[in-house]
Design a protein around this nucleic acid. Sequence first.
DNA 1: CATAATTAGTTTCCAATGAAACTATGTCAA
DNA 2: TTGACATAGTTTCATTGGAAACTAATTATG
Lengths: 175, 175
Amino acid sequence: MQPGKGYWEKILSEARGCLMVEGKTQKIPPQGFDLKSFFPYQTRVFYKHVIQAVSRVYEARYDMKPNEWRTLAILGSGNPSTPAEIVELSSIDKVSVSRAVTNLSKRGWILVRANRSDARSKVLTLSKAGKAVYHDLVPRMLEAEVELLSVLTDAEVSELKRLMEKLHSVADKPA
Amino acid sequence: MQPGKGYWEKILSEARGCLMVEGKTQKIPPQGFDLKSFFPYQTRVFYKHVIQAVSRVYEARYDMKPNEWRTLAILGSGNPSTPAEIVELSSIDKVSVSRAVTNLSKRGWILVRANRSDARSKVLTLSKAGKAVYHDLVPRMLEAEVELLSVLTDAEVSELKRLMEKLHSVADKPA
DNA sequence: CATAATTAGTTTCCAATGAAACTATGTCAA
DNA sequence: TTGACATAGTTTCATTGGAAACTAATTATG
């Protein structure tokens, strides 16, 4: 339960000089904070790199927005879905899903029909055209993924994924 | 130079059923694409988690925006800088830096003086108030980082950082 | 049943961001 | 010099995305 003490001891030791307890202003910082070695900063740079590498594909080829691609991807890989299911599966918020669905529908890529079991809802499926786009795009996206990851070994990719997932397991502080 | 063949062989094999070569439309996909196991998707989820964990701190405490925090962080840890240097160090674009500087200046946290050696430019430093904010915020940000990373061991943190950095080393395709 | 509380999805509004155009200054070459 | 081009920073504009309010339909409760 106490993993990696050393790490943050090191980090905090850098900050120690400028720690201030609530009211008490103390000391000048030991020139200590370095954005470049700050984990969230590194994550942001990393993220931008990854996203940019793959978003080019659907942007250039179909002028799609990220959320449209994600929505299409979910509809293509599964059975008919409701917007709510897409929210669930994509971690996009419902407002954005609504917009993506509207746009994809305008383009004729998805079909919207009523949901018999709940009139508030809708059932979405890919149209023929939508499937064609999906089939064209998926392998290209996977290629882009492969290209992106090609500097890493298999083992490294697995490890990276594992560590990213592990980070989520932080329980929200009970207090 | 050919690292981790197995990984993408696996990935591509899933797509194989629906690969289409330029003009030729082929096959139905093997129900194959799963957004949740798509690396860029995982990265986005990961990123949101990380950013959210730390941005709370400066948002709640000083109602600062991400780019304002980053700008402050750079000014605080170093010597006087020009906006261009901040762009360089923060990987924020110059438009955003300009805005962050304007806002921080309005709040009285940074001082702007002319740059003797180039009248187009400016020299920025933290004011007394700005330093106080910096000194208050830095240890809290580091704490948030520690908190965030506390589910990982030292070794895991190092490895994660290493892998994220390694991914950048992709050379932009020559052709 | 009737009505209160929820839920699905949309619309409206606003904050954040980046691209392109713009202003002012600096640099280089004839 | 003087003009052509480059550079620092700002402004304008369009796009994106999320929060909150809204509508319509459903479920729960008395």
